[in-house]
Amino acid sequence: MNFSFDVIWHNLPYMLAAARWTLLISLGGMAISLVWGVFVCAARISSGAVLSRLAALYISFFRGVPLLVQLLLFYYMLPYVGLDLPAIAAAILAVGLCSAAYSAEILRGALQTIPRGQTEAADALGIPTFSLWRRILIPQAIRIGLPSLVNELILLVKVSSLASVVGIGELTRISQNITGETYRPLEIYVAAAVIYFLINLVISLLGRLAEKRLQVA
């Protein structure tokens, strides 16, 4: 076995450029996941039976079908209904909508640990529902659910590698291309693994910082 660092060194600029797409998919996915996740969670625990059922169905579908399949569905099936999205938009949407199902469940779990008395007290004080969510429930839910949310974000970065199958030139795809040119799969994929690992290391460090900041003294 001969491990050649030259191959990695020569191709590193291309891989780092591709890592930007990985970051774009992950960050876009995260944004959709967190915002849409709050709405799905709110629908899931709302008192409206139909709304709650719909949210449960949403969560069940997006958690029950492999993301790779969801990506292919978004990419190949949306044109059937007349919605021809570019690959990158389809990927971000698929990743975000799927992750939102998980975020919604994480937030639901976190909300359940907030004592009901707080909601009742807010009702008694005449605080409107929107403020109740914005000022009381969501800040606490995020603090409690933060470790799981960071976990989910790390998963998102890794899941963005699946976007390679719909032809987006992100890190995994470009690594495949470089491998095709150089016939050095070991070096290239190990380098890709290191890049992914570093991205995730940064996220988990940021998560730990955020946990510290949000900690109640």
């Binding site: 076995m1 690594s175 799969p185 693994a193 690992f197």
Partner: peptide, 20 residues
């Protein structure tokens, strides 16, 4: 836990022959 499954699979399947 910090690397994607797909990359691990590639290292094993395509990189494996490099070390027999």
């Amino acid at each position: 836990r910090g690397t994607p499954f797909m990359i691990q699979l590639f290292i094993l399947y395509y990189g494996g022959p490099h070390f027999g």
